[in-house]
Nucleic acid binder design. Structure first.
Lengths: 95, 95
DNA sequence: CAGACCGTAACCTATAACGTAACGGGTGTC
DNA sequence: GACACCCGTTACGTTATAGGTTACGGTCTG
């Protein structure tokens, strides 16, 4: 359904929250209550945004947790859709 | 943000897809290309809907993969929000 | 009763999010 | 120049979970 590769949420987080506020990874991680490494791997696209992390981000940056987790879902889904043809699934619905 | 406990996606899957079509777990699992156990644990709320499973469901039942994964996200997020107060996070945004 | 089918439970594996600790690169300051 | 300090990243171990394989108890039907 999605037309093109959505950006990794960590990239968005960096560009929209961390950099504009001039925050370091260390400062932001401290505020979020996670380790520097946990935040670092997210910002570098090495790991995704967990539901709990989405809530943390919503508190720290006064945003909605939904938006963060939805971004992650869109990203994950696009990855999965790339292999749509490889999973042999048969139609089950009446339509 | 969400006001009340969203249903587990497996419950929705059972009520909206499996039961209306009179499918058994075995039949549906075969069509989806997964083991009976994998589908069974989802229907019983023991495991969630993965991105790949969302794509499988979208093919088998001619629906959108987004809707399935979003349901799962809403469910996971509600669980995480219940512990919002326990994660000590400090405000970082200017607002 | 024997066999076939159903759903679930037990066991194992792979992946991934997380913390701790260590590392390498800057930027000082004495 | 040597030391201290902060930064971001990497290495390693832990834990949680989606998934397959197999085995079990239940219900049919021949």
């Amino acid at each position: 359904m999605l037309m093109h590769n959505p950006p990794h949420p960590g990239e968005v987080l960096k560009e929209l929250c961390i950099e504009p506020l001039g925050l370091t990874v260390t400062e932001a991680a401290k505020g979020l209550g996670v380790s520097r490494k946990t935040l670092s791997t997210i910002l570098n696209g090495k790991s995704g945004i967990s539901p709990e992390m989405a809530v943390r981000l919503s508190i720290a940056f006064n945003t909605s947790s939904e938006s963060w987790l939805n971004q992650q879902s869109q990203y994950d889904l696009w990855q999965a859709e790339q292999h749509r043809k490889e999973l042999h699934v048969t139609q089950l619905s009446a339509a």
